[in-house]
């Protein structure tokens, strides 16, 4: 869920906005390295993909369903810098055009679902790749691991922010236990979805997956002669 207005106090909201701005500034510079001059059109359309992907309901049981958050998935697919830009733009459009997530909480949401999810998700993904065998089939499990840890990290960050700037007195350990409990379940769902999505893309177009990019062999050109 997106943090609404009035959930955290004003000073905390402003502080997270500051962190978000710093993160975006770093990402704007880094994205140029990932995508060169393709940044604007590609990041824009990938943001649209993330937005649409979040609309797909994954049925759980008894009429309930969950959906993708996509921080780790996006980082694995297009790289952490571009991934953060995509998540930021999705959250900004959701806040400004759909009233999903408070406008004063935009910084908080960017920190939770953008910065933390992307950085933690990508770091865990890279770490897992170092440990796992160097095979393309390992990309999806590593991404899934990144997804579950990223969701838990976002939840823990939220509890931390809440203990600083929350407006309702909830005991810290109660909240931490509850949030982590719920989010481990959500994180497992996120991991499964991330696994299926990444595995599907890696089998068809491994060249599109940033986290799976390897050197592709170049080959000698031949010329065919025709008598026409």
């Amino acid at each position: 869920m997106h943090v609404p207005d009035g959930f955290l106090d004003a000073p905390t909201s402003l502080a997270t906005a500051g962190v978000a701005v710093a993160g975006i500034a770093v990402a704007l510079r880094g994205a140029r390295r990932e995508l060169d001059d393709r940044v604007a059109p590609l990041a824009g359309i990938i943001a649209t993909f993330v937005f649409a992907g979040q609309m797909i309901n994954f049925p759980v049981a008894g009429g309930t369903s969950g959906h993708l958050m996509g921080g780790a998935l996006t980082a694995v697919l297009v790289g952490p810098y571009t991934g953060l830009l995509c998540m930021t733009v999705v959250l900004a459009v959701q806040a400004l055009m759909f009233a999903d997530g408070g406008i004063t909480a935009l910084g908080t949401n960017v920190v939770l679902m953008g910065v933390v999810a992307v950085v933690v998700g990508y770091a865990v993904f890279r770490g897992a790749l170092l440990v796992l065998p160097r095979r393309i089939s390992m990309v999806a499990p590593a991404a899934a691991l990144g997804a579950v840890v990223s969701v838990a990290a976002s939840a823990a960050t939220f509890v931390l922010l809440y203990s600083v700037g929350g407006v309702v007195p909830i005991p810290f350990d109660t909240l931490l236990t509850a949030m982590l409990g719920v989010h481990v379940v959500i994180g497992v769902g996120e991991a499964v979805i991330t696994f299926v999505v990444v595995a599907g893309i890696v089998t068809v177009r491994p060249d599109l997956v940033h986290g799976a990019r390897r050197l592709v062999a170049t080959r000698e050109l031949e010329t065919r002669l025709v008598s026409a």
């Binding site: 060249d207 592709v216 062999a217 170049t218 080959r219 050109l221 010329t223």
Partner: peptide, 8 residues
């Protein structure tokens, strides 16, 4: 003019 894509 001859051309191959990066994937070969």
């Amino acid at each position: 003019v001859a051309f191959a894509y990066p994937d070969g």
